[in-house]
Design a protein around this nucleic acid. Structure first.
Lengths: 205, 205
DNA sequence: ATAAATCACGAACACCGTTCGTGTCAAACG
DNA sequence: CGTTTGACACGAACGGTGTTCGTGATTTAT
């Protein structure tokens, strides 16, 4: 079922209409409401389906840091791989099976790191939020760059043309704003989060 | 103009139709297209309008950390104060006036902290992403809690009823998952980010 | 073989974003 | 002063949307 739907995000989320999904399944739009309560419900189911591509931590190898980073990056790519799905994840705190499994694995990983329970709980929150937000950003980048223009040079031109008298500090940062690949930035952000978590125990009440 | 529109998010973003906005302004829907290209364009303008409530850093008092935290929290509340707007911010990287001013101020603040340029650039990215994501989460929480149920006890019951054999680690964390107010969690997350940034210089190329 | 439950779907409803042609009305110009 | 220009307003229409309902068809259980 959801497999037939995931095929549809080739055209983006705005094109994902009930009628089109039904057409993909060679049926009528009304028939979908047997399996799904809403369009929102369908999107949530699709999100859960997409989250299934995140590997369980048991299969991950490497150091503790590498395993945490691999898990978070997997969430980022799972949410980013279908345009618009990441925004669904951010609009709610999904309490579906696959997401809960990820939470469960993440808790286990953080416990391995020797964190106390409260820090684990809040870190799970923070890391999941970061992963979905990064997924949303990545997805919108992918969608924009595949559709038409050269996004990077376009952004570069935009910042170069910015009036220096209104945004003096941005103008001075022009080189650095575009510096580094997206992957480098994302990896750095993840390192920041982990370093921050390790340096900021929430403590036990 | 945008003032008349902001009044509309009392009913949430899904109720924000062109026809209803026009009605609020005692005019027809077609008349809006003189001032605005799209519905998306209107949402972007509303987002920019909302971002205007974020104070310039020049007016902030306190230590460096307090000022950074105050700025980020202001962004969170600006995006969270109108349901659905935060998702607009996450769907794009808005390049509108108010947002650019915030970026400019944030760069200034980070430079004050003695960070190198690349770290400043990437931190701006990270902090803005975090702020909008936190805004989205806060907004959805506000929307849910004002509408109907007691969200907290509802979530508590949900996690208590979770099958321990499938999610063993979540079950064991039940107390901590609900621990702490939202404000405490958010403050901790911000501390994590700042500690992480200070401990993770991106370096100069 | 019959009853019951499940699934499919055409038609309809109310509403949406957007466009187009026409209308109003005030300022600018001769 | 009359006339032309331009900006703004808006009713009507188009093609599309999510969702509901009544009615069939088809499978399953008795």
């Amino acid at each position: 079922m959801q497999a037939g739907l995931a095929i549809l995000d080739r055209s983006g989320i705005v094109e994902l209409t009930m009628r089109r999904v039904a057409q993909e399944l060679d049926t009528g739009a009304a028939s979908l409401y047997v399996y799904v309560k809403n369009r929102d419900d369908l999107l949530l189911a699709m999100l859960d389906e997409a989250m299934g591509s995140v590997p369980r931590t048991a299969h991950l190898a490497g150091t503790w840091r590498e395993r945490v980073e691999a898990l978070i990056e997997a969430i980022v790519h799972a949410t980013a791989s279908h345009e618009g799905l990441a925004l669904v994840a951010l609009g709610t705190i999904p309490r579906t099976d696959k997401v809960l499994l990820i939470f469960n694995d993440l808790i286990g990983l953080l416990r391995e790191g020797g964190l106390d329970d409260r820090t684990i709980s809040w870190s799970t929150d923070l890391l999941y939020m970061h992963a979905t937000a990064a997924g949303a950003e990545l997805a919108s980048y992918i969608a924009r760059s595949s559709n038409e223009h050269d996004v990077v040079s376009e952004a570069s031109e935009f910042f170069a043309a910015l009036p220096a008298e209104r945004y003096p500090l941005i103008a001075g940062m022009h080189d650095e704003i575009m510096a580094g690949s997206g992957d480098e930035r994302d990896a750095w952000k993840l390192r920041v989060l982990l370093n921050g978590i390790l340096a900021t125990p929430a403590g036990r009440p």
